[in-house]
Simulated scan of single mutants.
Amino acid sequence: MNAISRMDTTARMSKVVIHHDTLYLCGQVADSSDAAIGPQTADMLAKVDALLEKAGSGRDQILSATIYLRDMKDFDGMNAVWDAWIPQGHAPARACVEARLARPELLVEVSIVAARQG
């Protein structure tokens, strides 16, 4: 039996890969790429919420997050939205790095690993 399943798969990638009870979300960015860091972060995290729910998980099940910022000057603005979004007492392991993103108007991207709700 194959313990790996995939959701919303294209030739290039899957939005979610599930291995046993662990979920791996592809990198999420905002749809509102002309917005400032706060709205982009909120939009991006709403997409994470939708994928987690679709896969049977939630914010309180996030194990790890890697956040990519186009410019570290946006660290505080991103964290203001992130801190309000993460349930108190459920902060995941996290890394935040500065990186060039796929399009110049994108300011933030996140990659998430989460557990399925049991």
Rank of each mutant, 00 (worst) to 15 (best):
G27V: 04
P87W: 00
I112F: 05
H90D: 04
E105S: 15
A93C: 06
R103E: 04
Y68G: 07
G56N: 02
G38D: 09
A93Y: 11
C96I: 15
A95L: 12
V16R: 00
V81H: 07
A102L: 11
S14L: 06
A99E: 15
D8R: 10
A95Y: 07
L69M: 10
A36F: 09
V29P: 04
D31F: 13
M1W: 10
G56M: 02
V17C: 04
H19G: 06
A115M: 10
K15C: 12
S57V: 02
Y68V: 04
A30S: 15
T10R: 01
A55L: 02
A55F: 00
S32H: 10
A35M: 10
T41Y: 05
E105C: 12
G77H: 08
A80G: 08
A3I: 12
G38M: 07
V16W: 00
H90V: 04
D60I: 05
A3K: 14
M78S: 11
V17G: 02
D76A: 14
Q61E: 14
D74N: 15
V113C: 12
N79H: 15
D60P: 03
A91C: 05
H19I: 10
S111V: 15
R116G: 06
F75T: 00
M7K: 09
P87R: 01
V48T: 09
H90E: 04
L25R: 00
Q117D: 13
K15I: 08
A84S: 09
A35S: 12
P104T: 03
R12K: 13
H20K: 13
D34K: 11
A99Q: 15
N2K: 12
E53Y: 03
I112D: 08
I67W: 13
W85F: 03
I18E: 09
A50G: 07
G89V: 04
S32F: 11
S57Q: 04
V48I: 14
L23N: 00
A50E: 13
L45N: 01
S111N: 11
D60E: 14
F75K: 05
Q28H: 06
L63W: 01
V113W: 02
V48N: 03
D31I: 12
M78V: 15
A11Y: 03
A84D: 12
V108E: 07
R70C: 02
D60Y: 00
C96S: 10
N2V: 08
F75E: 11
I62D: 01
E105Q: 15
W85Y: 08
V108H: 01
A102R: 10
A30L: 04
Q40V: 02
A36G: 08
P39Q: 07
W85M: 05
D71R: 06
A93W: 07
T41P: 07
E109Y: 04
G89M: 04
E109A: 15
R59M: 10
D43I: 02
P87Q: 01
T66Y: 08
Q28M: 13
V97T: 12
G77C: 09
N79A: 13
I37Q: 07
L25A: 01
S57H: 00
I37F: 07
P92H: 05
L107A: 06
A46R: 08
G38V: 06
T9M: 09
M72Q: 12
K15P: 05
S5D: 12
E98M: 06
D21W: 02
A102N: 11
R103C: 06
T10S: 14
L51D: 13
